[in-house]
């Protein structure tokens, strides 16, 4: 054989195993997460997508609507920033579905499936990468907020609890994104879903405006909207105010979403591949 020999005659590798151990599976997950994140290096626009867009929202709402809604831009920023972080989290989860859909339509997924990987590693890799993007967005928004005058009214522990809660919710909501990613014909449709479904859900909440001026029937919806609960919980943990109720509500929603969309997504996923 030559130095550049491409293959070996050897049959199975000596460590040929019937399945993948959990530690090996986690290592594969980390490699696949790396793969998703390293793409940003080649396509910096993607970074812009989940960086500039939320910053633009903060600026637009604070300076255009802020004074009218809260009397001053400073007061409005304190009110709106935690909610904007929540909204942005929902949008960023769509990357899981878009990436998954790209892999499915372009054949990358088939290549991965012919490798001896843990069955859950490709999905777990996507979701892990998504959590990194989420953490980045949250830090970025808090940083921009701080520059504009947003002040944490609570403690570091509570702030971290808020970030943790948002990430837990992101993890649960990722299953919705997985389902859309599996069902959509192409990545653009995932994005269209993100726009058409997530905009109303986030706007019909108390992220941007207090709900008192809304009609009663709308308030009824807004009050149970998980986005409202999560925004309230984040406000409570970041700025101060009631915490227990909205946190429990958010966690119940997260559990319910994961319990429904987790199995459905896995089922749809197995059907497609």
């Amino acid at each position: 054989m030559t130095a550049a020999s491409v293959t070996a005659n050897a049959p199975a590798t000596p460590e040929s195993a019937a399945r993948v151990g959990p530690i090996e599976g986690l290592r594969q997950t980390a490699t696949l997460a790396w793969r998703t994140l390293v793409q940003i290096k080649h396509n910096p626009w993607e970074l812009g997508d989940f960086s500039f867009q939320p910053i633009m929202f903060v600026l637009l709402f604070t300076y255009v609507f802020g004074g009218a809604i809260s009397g001053s831009t400073g007061a409005y920023l304190t009110f709106a920033l935690p909610g904007i972080i929540v909204m942005n989290m929902l949008f960023v989860t769509m990357y899981v579905g878009m990436g998954l859909n790209t892999d499915l339509t372009k054949g990358v997924f088939d290549r991965l499936r012919t490798l001896p990987l843990a069955r859950w590693a490709p999905l777990a890799g996507r979701i892990t990468a998504d959590l990194v993007k989420q953490a980045w967005s949250i830090v970025l928004l808090l940083g921009v907020g701080a520059i504009l005058g947003f002040r944490i009214g609570t403690s570091v522990v509570e702030l971290l609890a808020a970030v943790g809660l948002i990430l837990v919710f992101a993890l649960a909501f990722s299953w919705v994104s997985v389902l859309v990613g599996v069902l959509a014909a192409d990545p653009e449709k995932v994005q269209i879903f993100g726009m058409t479904a997530l905009f109303p859900i986030t706007f019909v909440s108390n992220v941007f405006v207090p709900i008192e001026t809304m009609p009663g029937w709308l308030q009824a919806f807004v009050n149970v909207n998980p986005v409202t609960l999560l925004a309230d919980a984040s406000r409570g943990l970041m700025v101060g105010g009631p915490v227990a109720g909205p946190v429990i509500g958010s966690l119940l929603w997260a559990t319910a979403i994961a319990a429904v969309f987790g199995p459905v997504s896995v089922w749809a996923f197995k059907r497609r591949v």
Binding site: R35, V38, Q39, H42, N43, D103, K106, G107, V108, D110, R111, T114
Partner: peptide, 10 residues
């Protein structure tokens, strides 16, 4: 035709 590389990677 179906198993493919990741176009976004080098």
């Amino acid at each position: 035709q179906y198993a493919s590389v990741d176009e976004a990677l080098t």
